[in-house]
Structure formats: C-alpha cells, structure tokens
Simulated scan of single mutants.
Amino acid sequence: MIDGRKILELHFDGISQRTISASTGHSRNTVSDVIQRATERGIDSLEDRMTKKWLYEFLFPEREPMEKGYHPVDFEMIHKELQKKNVTLKLLHHEYCSTARDAGRIPYAYRSFTEKYGSYAKKYKLTMPIRRKPGEVLEVDWAGATLKIMDSAAGEEIEAYVFVAALPYSQYFYAEAFLDMKSQSWLTAHVHAFEYFGGAPRRWSRTTSRPESRSIAEATHR
C-alpha cells in the first residue's frame, strides 16, 4: 500500500520529490501522483485522522473496490448524470446497486457511496467568476419562496411575494414584498429599487427563465 502520509509529511516539510522517493521507496511518479491528488482534494496539512489507510482510500478511491471485492463506481459518469434534471445521488446509488448485484459483486452502502463521490467531486471547480462592470446591469426577479404577512384586522395570514434586485459587481441588493406579482407591482418595485440605489444601471436582466436583457429605455417604453 502506498504510504501517502509519509509522502505528504515530507512534502509539507519542503523535501524534494526526488528525496521523498528515495526515502519512502516509492517511485517518483507515485510520489508526484500522491501530491497532485492531495492538492486537488484540498489537503494542505495532515490531521490525526489521516492515517496511511485513510489517505490511501481517500486519494485512490478507484483502486479500493477491486482490492476488496466491491463493485467499482464510475464517478465520471455519476458526475455527469447529476447535471441532469431530477437526478439524485440516491437514484444513482440504487442503479449502481442493481448493476453490482447483476455482476455478482458487493455494492457500497449509500453513505460510503456519497463520501467517495464527494472526494472525487472536489477536483471540479463548481464556481465560475462572472465579470461585471460597476453599474452595468441590475439583476431582478421574484424570489422563489413567498412570505406570510399577518392581517391584524382580519386575523389571517396573507401571502407576500418578494421582489429582489441585485447589483452583481458590488453585491448590493434591494428587496421588497408585494401582495401580488402583477405588472403594477413589478414596475413599482423597479422604481423603488432605482430610488434606493440612487440611480439606474445601463440595463437590467431577469435571473430566471430564458436570458432576458433590456436597456432601461426599452423597459420603460413597453
């Protein structure tokens, strides 16, 4: 078994990969692979729980199944399937278990399945910067969830719809609740947002549905 802990201990102490290879008996390719995988998975220091066995399973999840008789998981396929609508890890685990049993192998339990996928997914950067200029665009929409307002006169709760406007460059935002999502409320919300920000952007963009971007002049003349 690869001694990932010893390799990383020496690496974090500033020892060269050539020296680590000679010291641990592992090839330079193995040493480089361990360091690269640890970097991709966000390991920049060692903790007590990171034993030799723990690190091997964490850094080389694809090798463990064959060694222990478990059915291997195609994590690349899992990652791609999760991008599809209504696909969950629970569903994919159920399909994986069926495939494993058909192949006469042992499937991972759901907890192990999700932990191993989580380790694999760390190599992907899930965020991407969106470059904006100050005051260039205002992103607006109705929030997905509604609020409840108590009508003290009638003694009953009334649904309130929340309008949100955000300036992505500065991350300033404005929010206001309305009793409906009709055109008048939509226009009023925009006027109040512009008053709050002290001006108007070059254009606005609705954040849901299809991308929609209009200049302020176009919006006000419709």
Rank of each mutant, 00 (worst) to 15 (best):
M1F: 03
I2A: 12
R5D: 14
R5F: 13
R5T: 14
R5N: 11
L10Q: 12
L10I: 06
S16Q: 07
Q17M: 13
S23C: 15
S23D: 15
R28T: 14
R28L: 13
T30N: 14
V34P: 01
T39F: 08
R41E: 06
G42K: 15
G42V: 12
D44Y: 15
S45Q: 11
L46S: 10
L46P: 07
E47T: 02
E47W: 01
R49C: 11
T51D: 08
K52I: 12
K53F: 06
W54Y: 13
L55D: 06
E62H: 14
K68T: 14
K68N: 03
Y70P: 01
Y70Q: 02
P72Y: 09
F75N: 07
M77P: 00
I78N: 05
E81A: 13
N86H: 09
V87L: 11
K90E: 15
H94N: 03
C97S: 10
T99I: 01
D102L: 11
R105I: 00
R105W: 00
I106T: 14
A109M: 12
Y110R: 07
R111D: 09
T114R: 11
E115K: 14
Y117S: 02
S119M: 12
K123M: 13
K123F: 03
L126S: 13
P129A: 09
I130E: 12
I130W: 01
R132P: 01
K133F: 08
E136N: 07
E136R: 03
V137L: 09
V137S: 02
L138E: 10
L138K: 02
D141N: 09
D141L: 07
D141M: 06
D141S: 09
W142N: 06
W142G: 07
K148R: 13
K148I: 10
K148M: 15
D151Y: 00
S152K: 10
S152I: 12
E156M: 06
E157D: 01
E157C: 00
E159Q: 10
F163D: 05
A165N: 05
P168A: 09
Y169L: 04
Y169Q: 03
Q171E: 14
Y172Q: 15
F173H: 09
E176P: 02
F178K: 00
L179R: 02
D180L: 05
M181T: 08
S183G: 02
T188R: 05
T188N: 12
T188P: 00
G199D: 04
R203K: 13
W204D: 05
S205E: 11
R206L: 09
T208P: 02
R210C: 11
R210Q: 14
E212F: 10
S213K: 02
R214W: 05
R214V: 14
T220K: 00
T220Q: 08
